[in-house]
Simulated scan of single mutants.
Amino acid sequence: MATMNFSIPDDIKDKFNQAFQGTNKSAVVADLMVEAIERKDKQQRSKAAIDRILERRKHAPTVTDEEIRAAREELRA
């Protein structure tokens, strides 16, 4: 296992120690890091998906309001 050192404000350290008193704090920090990594990966996948959608929209055929109205009327008939 690797060791990491972080500097954090004293009040955060105190609150963390109080909240997780009696637990394996290294495991808690490792779990939080895993969650942060997963959240970051999800954000990157979402951004990539949005970028792909926006790129496809650039090449999509355009339809006028009148064409949309006509299609609606045709389907209602």
Rank of each mutant, 00 (worst) to 15 (best):
R45H: 05
A30D: 06
E73I: 09
A71I: 12
E67A: 10
A70G: 02
E66R: 15
V29G: 00
N5G: 02
M33Y: 04
R57S: 06
V29T: 03
L54D: 07
I50D: 01
A30G: 00
T62G: 13
E55C: 01
S46T: 13
I12V: 15
K47Q: 14
I50A: 06
D14Y: 09
R56C: 04
D10K: 08
A19N: 07
R72Q: 10
V63W: 11
G22W: 11
V28P: 00
A71T: 11
T64R: 05
R76H: 07
A36V: 03
M1P: 03
E55R: 02
I37F: 06
T3I: 13
K42E: 06
F6S: 06
M4L: 14
D14N: 12
S7K: 12
F6R: 06
M33D: 00
K58E: 09
I53H: 03
Q18V: 01
A70R: 12
Q43D: 06
D41V: 13
A71L: 15
A77E: 10
R39H: 05
N5T: 15
Q18E: 07
E73G: 01
I68K: 14
I53F: 05
A36Q: 07
D14I: 13
T3R: 15
N17D: 15
I50K: 01
K58C: 02
I50V: 03
L32A: 04
K47H: 11
E66N: 14
K15V: 11
D41T: 11
R56T: 04
I53S: 07
H59N: 07
L75Q: 08
F16C: 05
I37Q: 04
I12M: 14
L54Q: 10
R72P: 00
Q21A: 13
I53Y: 05
E35M: 09
I53A: 11
S26D: 13
D65G: 15
D65E: 13
Q21M: 09
V63K: 13
E74G: 01
E55A: 15
Q21H: 12
G22L: 10
A77H: 12
E66T: 14
Q18G: 11
N24D: 15
A49C: 01
Q18H: 03
A36K: 08
D51T: 07
Q44G: 01
I68Q: 09
Q21V: 04
E74Y: 15
R72K: 14
I12K: 09
V29N: 01
D11M: 00
S46L: 14
P9V: 09
A48L: 11
I37A: 08
I8E: 08
Q21P: 00
F16D: 02
I53V: 14
N5H: 07
I8Q: 08
K58D: 02
K58G: 04
V34Q: 07
E74I: 11
A2L: 12
V34T: 04
V63L: 15
K42Q: 11
D51M: 10
H59F: 03
V28H: 00
D41H: 12
N17M: 10
N17P: 02
A70D: 13
A60V: 08
I53R: 10
P9C: 06
M4G: 01
K13N: 08
V63A: 14
M1S: 11
R72C: 12
R56K: 12
P61W: 01
D65V: 10
R76M: 10
R69A: 12
T64D: 13
F20H: 15
L54A: 10
